[in-house]
């Protein structure tokens, strides 16, 4: 790649980075402000006071955070190391991972949750298990693809210079794969926060409770619930993108 091309890419990343840094929180702020205006135009419903109070909203918001971040934490802690192991060791599993990841796209998240319900009943645990299963696939797929996508010549030269298998993995392969790994993590975070909204159908709690209690009854409740979930998803993705910027080596991209 020519210097000019690299510079061009650098500039583009820079401008995108400024956009990311400020545009997302700004847009979320504007969106929330606008929805206050919209809120006033909507007819109040009889159920509003029971839902639109700080106790109920806070409990559902905290519940949503817990569902999402516990699931995401498990996925990240299990998925990345497992993906690395599959990429370097278990060839037969690689095909399986890609197959499942593709199949997983065709299976609806709500279906997975209700399957878990059929197996384990109502509650937060089946919801979390369902979210973990659903969120694991993008992380596994991207980790495996990232590690396997590292130029074999780079690995050969690392080994040829006397790096141990572990040194090559930690200081060469994983950093080079990190952009793709992070892309997988971000996909999963958004997926998990979104699917957690459906957790209310199997008794998982979360902000889905708010939206569901407004459907057919009060547009105001639906609006509040939807805006809260949307803001949460956007801000969480934004926060993870900041982590990504700090962790992924600057000049490589997926």
């Amino acid at each position: 790649m020519s210097v000019a091309a690299v510079t061009a890419r650098g500039t583009r990343r820079l401008s995108l980075s400024w956009l990311r840094l400020f545009a997302v929180p700004a847009a979320v702020g504007i969106g929330i402000a606008a929805s206050f205006g919209v809120f006033q135009t909507l007819a109040p419903g009889p159920a509003d006071s029971g839902v639109l109070n700080s106790t109920f909203l806070e409990s559902r918001f905290v519940g949503h955070l817990a569902l999402s971040f516990i699931s995401f934490g498990i996925v990240a802690l299990v998925g990345v190391p497992l993906g690395v192991l599959i990429a370097i060791g278990a060839r037969p599993f690689r095909v399986l991972v890609f197959l499942l990841a593709n199949l997983g796209q065709a299976v609806p998240g709500i279906g997975i949750l209700v399957l878990l319900y059929a197996w384990l009943g109502l509650g937060a645990e089946p919801t979390i298990i369902g979210l973990v299963i659903f969120g694991l696939l993008p992380v596994l797929r991207n980790t495996v693809a990232g590690i396997n996508g590292v130029d074999p010549a780079v690995i050969e030269s690392a080994r040829g210079m006397g790096m141990t298998r572990l040194q090559a993995l930690l200081s060469v392969e994983i950093p080079l794969a990190s952009a793709l790994i992070f892309a997988g993590l971000r996909t999963t975070l958004v997926l998990v926060i979104g699917t957690a909204t459906l957790g209310n159908f199997i008794g998982g709690g979360g902000l889905g409770d708010v939206i569901a209690s407004g459907i057919n009854r009060s547009d105001r409740i639906v609006l509040v619930g939807a805006v809260m979930v949307a803001a949460l998803a956007l801000l969480a993705d934004w926060a993870l993108s900041l982590v990504e910027r700090a962790v992924v080596p600057k000049r490589i991209s997926a």
Binding site: D151, A153, V154, I155, E156, S157, A158, G160, M161, V172, P175, L176, P249, R251, I252
Partner: peptide
């Protein structure tokens, strides 16, 4: 050790 593909670490 030097190889044709060089294998410099791009990062």
């Amino acid at each position: 050790y030097v190889i044709q593909a060089i294998g410099l670490f791009p990062h």
